[in-house]
Design a protein around this nucleic acid. Structure first.
Lengths: 162, 162
DNA sequence: GTTGAAAGAAACCGATC
DNA sequence: GATCGGTTTCTTTCAAC
């Protein structure tokens, strides 16, 4: 990270995380800057990898993917190789949209997005066939209460100056 | 939904979900269409609410949010009112980026994004102070293996025509 | 940081085949 | 659906302050 974010960067990130269709001039006026420096800041945020991309979001229901399932998994083995191979497998499965390795009694959580129970069953069979797993528990989402892509950008805590 | 998605819509959605910075002309040539009809399809997908927005994605680590925590919750009460009030509370908390109501032994999963353990503790105290909860279990993410916003757009299964 | 300007690219939208 | 054309808006860059 080349430079810590200042207040203006934070404002820019908040706006772009909510809506990336605004023009640079729009954003500039909202953060209280003129277009040129605002454009340069956005460029820099992209070059620095703070902004990783711009994407369109799609309504899950509207494309027929009515079911979200959280799958909790205990690893088959506790080795680096097993972990790497499992990660590769999951990255190749498009219905798996989130995977975190956890501390605690489960090793992994997945969020899986499918059309219905039948599709999930097909996914599930494919998953357990591909990899040796010790335990798999699936919990079905009844309702999506909240799902945002905007992260809470906050100023970094003041550094102690020794 | 006014019209089912055809193969071209699906291709467009796949491209825009990966990268929304492509020009219409780009997308058009990739899906094998000319600009105008491609532009009209994108407009329609937006009007129909299939595309819900375009956002910038931000690197969680780069803005100092090093910790993701999954919080599992058993509801304090099983009433509509409790559910609604709990949902409102969570929607007002920016560090809570995902909330699903689940079937099974836990009623809710949250994904919470914070800078560190200290910040999480502050969040946790705020959460349990605000709402009466029967049980709260926090599981910490050690590693983000995968997190994509692109949903697996698939053609709808052929309808039975009776 | 600011303003202003200017080239090129895109979005937008109608008309026509 | 394709192609054309034209208006408008935005991006991007470069000056000068």
């Amino acid at each position: 990270m080349s430079r810590p974010l200042d207040h203006l960067d934070i404002k820019i990130l908040r706006l772009l995380q909510e809506n990336a269709t605004h023009s640079v001039a729009d954003i500039a006026s909202k953060v209280g800057l003129s277009s040129t420096p605002c454009w340069k800041r956005i460029q820099r945020l992209q070059m620095d990898g703070v902004i990783t991309g711009r994407v369109a979001l799609v309504d899950q229901e509207k494309i027929g993917l009515g079911l979200s399932v959280f799958v909790f998994i205990e690893a088959g083995e506790q080795t680096k190789e097993w972990q790497a191979s499992f990660a590769t497998t999951l990255r190749g499965m498009p219905e798996v949209v989130e995977v975190y390795r956890l501390a605690g009694d489960y090793d992994y959580v997945l969020r899986v997005v499918v059309a219905d129970m039948k599709s999930f069953d097909r996914f599930y069979r494919r998953l357990i066939k591909t990899t040796e797993l010790k335990n798999v528990t699936s919990r079905f989402a009844m309702e999506k209460i909240k799902a945002i892509t905007a992260l809470p950008v906050v100023p970094p805590p003041p550094q102690a100056t020794p």
